[in-house]
Design a binder for these strands. Structure first.
Lengths: 228, 228
DNA sequence: CGGATGGTTGAGCGCTGTCAAGTCTAGTGG
DNA sequence: CCACTAGACTTGACAGCGCTCAACCATCCG
């Protein structure tokens, strides 16, 4: 049964504050009467490209996804990381505005947009959930503009750590799926600057590495004070 | 009659590419059966504050509005400028996520959110228009994240000029309503850096000042090449 | 074991910020 | 009508944060 899986995810989604108060994807899927498919992507595989027709709405089940834009010379800005439970791919135009790639081997659930549009036309709750999902993305983007435009390197990294801690820390320890370059491209920094900031926080005892990507926050209060 | 005013605005709105293909505000208003009120604000007057309950949806009629976020020490990131025809204030949670202020003396049309919510519950077209408005904001925010995270100062200013030229140039000349500090806080730069970039573009013959805020682009092609 | 990928750290530089002085403009009152 | 003032803008000098380039180290996987 799907319900079991969906219910399992609901608890997870509730942990993600930027997805408001409910399992939007589950509600949308149930409201539209469509059975979602599952699909898997290998590490670094493209899920969809910027400019391609937007045909599906996705939910990450396992793994992690980055969505990004490129400048002509290759400079990259990652707009968001999509962790288990997160919904992505909802570009309510005809085309995707960012490229989506699997950061590690990733499984997603997906439903055709066409059936969502159809359901939204007659089911106000589905329409509202779709709107709320877009609004969540907007909220994140607004916060991220403040970070990119006005925060210093150490403040950006502090904000990033708190965001990831909130979203994927289970046992006080977080396992980052992305490399330093991805973090840099998310924060508008170089990978070296990210590395230096993390080392500095380690030296100050604010975090502890068990490996480069296994990080435990040891003092969230000081980190919160640093994010400005 | 309202229709006259609304029709007058429609032509204007069509000039703004990030508002898609229609006068969303007008359609929403008509679909909800509410008569919008008008209200005026003086230069630098606050329209709503971050964290306040979001009670109205606004459309700029005359003047200009900035929406921004602040860090605790006063650093400011302007998320968007709202020029005549633009809709703002649509934060689909309970609270506004940014502060809105009039940049110059400004007149807005406004409708209560409550009546929109009500209309959206039964009128799918109203719901879709609200969603589309939020999606337009998201698209702008995604583009702006790329600018803030990855573009150089001169590229940011070039992008800004092309955006403003597109949105408010009438006779090949644009009259900027905002000061250099506002531009800097929009582009993640200081006002001095903005001023230097504009001077440089002037020296290169890419633009021409008739006064500090009256600017004519003389070579859009070179400017487009500079925005990366 | 050896190579590849990812991460850390150092040295030096450059872009943009800071601080400051000077100019221009618009608005105000004499 | 003009002097005065305040705010906005420009420009210069200098400094510093974060980038570039480079070397080295760690980990993973064949």
């Amino acid at each position: 049964m799907h319900t079991e899986t969906i219910t399992g995810l609901t608890a997870k989604v509730l942990d993600i504050p930027h997805v408001l108060a409910a399992d939007q994807f589950g509600e949308i899927v149930r409201g539209s009467g469509v059975v979602p498919s599952e699909f898997s992507y290998r590490k670094d595989e493209e899920i969809y490209g910027e400019g391609e027709p937007s045909e599906y709405l996705y939910q990450t089940i396992g793994g992690a996804v980055r969505t990004y834009k490129l400048l002509s010379d290759g400079r990259r800005q990652i707009g968001a990381f999509h962790l288990p439970g997160d919904v992505f791919g909802l570009d309510p135009g005809l085309e995707h505005r960012l490229t989506a790639e699997a950061i590690v081997d990733t499984t997603v659930r997906l439903v055709p947009r066409r059936s969502l549009e159809k359901a939204a036309a007659s089911n106000a709750q589905v329409a509202r959930n779709l709107w709320t999902l877009t609004a969540s993305d907007l909220r994140h983007a607004e916060d991220h503009m403040l970070l990119l435009g006005r925060k210093t390197a150490i403040e950006r990294v502090a904000t990033f750590l708190l965001e990831m801690d909130r979203r994927l820390a289970k046992t006080g320890m977080m396992a980052l799926p992305m490399c330093r370059r991805d973090i840099g491209d998310y924060l508008g920094l170089t990978l070296e600057t990210v590395s230096r900031a993390l080392s500095q926080l380690n030296d100050q005892g604010i975090l502890m590495f068990s490996s480069a990507r296994q990080i435990a926050l040891r003092n969230r209060q000081r980190l919160t004070a640093m994010e400005a």
